[in-house]
Design a protein around this nucleic acid. Sequence first.
DNA 1: ATCCTCCCCTAC
DNA 2: TAAGGTAGGGGAGGAT
Length: 292
Amino acid sequence: MAGDTREVHQRDIGEPSNDDAQRVANEMRNQEPLLAMKLRTTHEDPEFMSTFFKASRLHFIGTWKARYQEILDSLPPPPALPPSHGCERLVFHIDMDCFFASVAVRGRPELANRPVAVCWGTSNNGSAEISSANYEARGFGIGAGMFIREARQRCPALVTVPYEFDKYSATAEDMYRTLFDFTPHVQGVSVDEAYADFTGMGEAGDLASKLRAAIKERTGGCCASIGSGPNRLIARLGTKRAKPDGHWHIAQAQAAACVAELPVSDLPVCHPPNDLHGLLYKSSWIVDLPAI
DNA sequence: ATCCTCCCCTAC
DNA sequence: TAAGGTAGGGGAGGAT
């Protein structure tokens, strides 16, 4: 079988096997106290509420702003945004690639080049929700929001690893401190995503490659993708095309043409189900919207 | 017209 | 077994 041949080949050249990767994932689970407890009621665990929030990825994401504020408080207050003098602004949208999964793979060579997904859940056919999947896993059609059961059907060799919230906080801080080294004009969006104004600081491609390299080094190997353009919306649309591990610039002059050929669903807030969802039936492409 | 409060919705 | 929280934008609708 082709798969067997590949395994033999990997062993020959000393690369970690799938077994090595699964063993590392098992060790991660074994060292996670939250998985050792397996306590589910207030009777079994008097600290049930606290345990629940400690294990919640949504709570982690939702309370990130408070931790970000501590970073802001440790820095001098940002100067006012300098005027652009009528020239177009250079706005960056920085977004870490599959953040939780890349933190998991970082420093664990056994997981490199393997399909990896982050979730609680130790059962192969459970309904634990995957919150981050690396690009190898996405190649099997695995993505955020999918239950572990379906992901395992699509890729039996998938490596599932538990959350490491403390590492996410520290890595996010590394990313933000790197960004603040470049400019004080930073707007934090979330734990793994920010906008920054680079107007008048140089050429977009050059700045982006320097910033991405600095983030990758400071975070120990986590990649950021960057979209850039004259405003936040255009920059953000550029990031979609930049991923993974890339940069895409959309200048003001190209912005209208670039955006026109995108599907309506690429716009923020235009994802069903919502109030604008009817538009998706009338038009799939942004270029057609003015005709509606 | 303007300013509120609530409430629904999105994104992360 | 799995860990669905949180902040902020914007519309509706009432009070001024």
